[in-house]
């Protein structure tokens, strides 16, 4: 069984991005967090469509970072966990 990651309802957060970096506002807590480029891209992709980790990594490698060092599952799983604990992602088993 694999986990599919998805963003929570857009009513629960706001994301603003400039030149890769971004700021994330959480409606429930009122907290704001600074996101690096990978965090921003992960959240933007999952806002549009849920993905499994491997699919998400593929997306990032193909469309976002085609010319840079390859992103690995390990690099992204930490980002997913952080966003999950911030309350902007959910994971469901499929």
């Amino acid at each position: 069984m694999t986990k599919v990651w998805s963003a929570v309802s857009p009513d629960l957060f706001q994301l603003k991005e400039w030149e890769g970096e971004g700021v994330l506002y959480l409606a429930d807590s009122g907290d704001t967090h600074l996101l690096n480029q990978v965090g921003v891209q992960v959240l933007m992709i999952l806002k549009d469509k849920p993905f499994e980790l491997s699919e998400l990594v593929e997306q990032l490698n193909q469309s976002i970072y085609p010319n840079s060092e390859r992103i690995t599952d390990n690099m992204i799983s930490g980002v997913l966990t952080e966003l999950y604990y911030l309350g902007v992602l959910t994971k469901v088993k499929s």
């Binding site: 603003k16 400039w18 030149e19 700021v23 704001t32 600074l34 996101l35």
Partner: peptide, 11 residues
């Protein structure tokens, strides 16, 4: 200064 960092600093 990056805009995101500036946002956090102003907040």
């Amino acid at each position: 200064k990056s805009k995101a960092q500036t946002f956090m600093g102003v907040a």
